[in-house]
Amino acid sequence: MQNAIKIHVNGEERDWRSGATVSDLLTELDIKTERVAVELNLEILDRVAFGQRQIKDGDRVEIMSFIGGGSSSRGQHG
């Protein structure tokens, strides 16, 4: 049975459902799994774990990828 839960994805609160995995979240957000890194409550997940790890109420998910940048910047582009 699936209950409505609240999670944080990239800093934003989001309605979600219990029992769903990281893979389910990526699919719903239309994010291809290659070249992204996922951090679940500060733990960096192995790509093979995406399909098994369920996201629980209150979990914090960070989905990271590569953007343009050379050297340091405080803004979006380095």
């Binding site: 990239n10 800093g11 992204v36 989905i63 990828s65 590569f66 953007i67 050297s71 582009h77 380095g78």
Partner: peptide
């Protein structure tokens, strides 16, 4: 080529990826 690591834009998925 150097790249930076940042949060994926989850609100606007139309944005293209550098890679």
């Amino acid at each position: 080529v150097t790249v930076a690591v940042r949060r994926v834009n989850i609100t606007d998925r139309s944005k293209e990826n550098l890679l």
